[in-house]
């Protein structure tokens, strides 16, 4: 009898098929992903059975932190072909900043704020803002990391847009100035969304005391923005 020959097997594995699969998966994730927007505080929204999706364009979202700090984020038209890009996020934010500053300077002649073009440019790139007008210039001069640190620090008294229970629209508070500026930003689609109640989304943590959110709701009521939406997570009706 002859010797049993043990065949030597090569340990090389062909990775081509594996590579094909991973590329497919990668393509899927790249196309479906929407990146998490940077927000100063992470909030856990309460859950509801409502199935209406948050719009991705023409939206002013108001973030209320658990200790009552308010931040605003404005999204314009996502499609650059609408109004020749005039209504995209950046030009809209610029217009809002101009309106808001004009109103602030008119009401507070002794405390005027004027920004340089580069500071305005920085503002248009911000996803979410929330500083008092008097701090705005200093805030926009900071580097991006410093800005993040500045508004994420909940102990910082200068983080968040000042809001109170003011009902006199002759002397609006800073939150009311911003909301009015957003309303009169000149983007018809945004204005229509605001009227329908789809343009404003209030986002608050589920543990936030009602008194804190109430200030914001009350201000919106005073501004006659009675229709708005509340951001929630999905739950089944059995819960």
């Amino acid at each position: 009898m002859g010797k049993v020959k043990i065949k030597r097997k090569s340990t090389l594995i062909d990775m081509t098929a594996m590579s094909d699969v991973t590329v497919l998966l990668l393509t899927f994730f790249m196309l479906t992903s929407t990146f998490l927007q940077k927000e100063p505080v992470t909030v856990l929204t309460p859950s509801s059975v409502s199935e209406i999706k948050v719009p991705t364009n023409n939206l002013a979202s108001i973030l209320v932190s658990p200790n009552g700090k308010v931040f605003i984020s404005v999204l314009g038209e996502a499609d650059p072909t609408v109004a020749d890009g005039e209504w995209a996020s950046e030009p809209i934010r610029k217009q809002i900043l101009e309106n808001a500053l004009g109103e602030w300077n008119r009401l507070h002649p002794s405390n005027k704020v004027s920004l340089t073009p580069s500071e305005i440019e920085t503002f248009t790139k911000l996803n979410m803002f929330g500083v008092p007008f008097t701090q705005l210039k200093a805030f926009l001069d900071m580097s991006q990391t410093e800005q993040d640190k500045f508004i994420s620090n909940m102990e910082n008294p200068a983080a968040g847009i000042p809001v109170n229970d003011n009902r006199d629209l002759e002397k609006p508070n800073e939150f009311q100035i911003w909301m009015r500026a957003i309303y009169s930003s000149g983007n018809d689609n945004l204005q229509r969304a605001l009227k329908r109640g789809e343009g404003i989304a209030v986002k608050a943590d589920k543990g936030t005391p009602y008194a804190v959110v109430h200030d914001v709701l009350d201000n919106l009521q005073t501004l006659k923005m009675n229709r708005f939406s509340i951001m929630t997570a999905l739950k089944s009706s059995e819960d």
């Binding site: 990668l26 994730f29 790249m30 479906t32 992903s33 929407t34 990146f35 998490l36 929204t45 509801s48 409502s50 199935e51 209406i52 999706k53 948050v54 009902r167 109640g197 789809e198 989304a201 986002k203 709701l217 009350d218 919106l220 009521q221 005073t222 006659k224 009675n226 229709r227 708005f228 939406s229 509340i230 951001m231 929630t232 997570a233 999905l234």
Partner: peptide, 20 residues
């Protein structure tokens, strides 16, 4: 990409408040 994506989009609840 898996860690950075938000697959579940948040929902909204529409409400109308009475005037002040």
């Amino acid at each position: 990409f898996m860690l950075c994506t938000t697959m579940i989009k948040s929902q909204t609840l529409q409400i109308t408040l009475p005037t002040n």
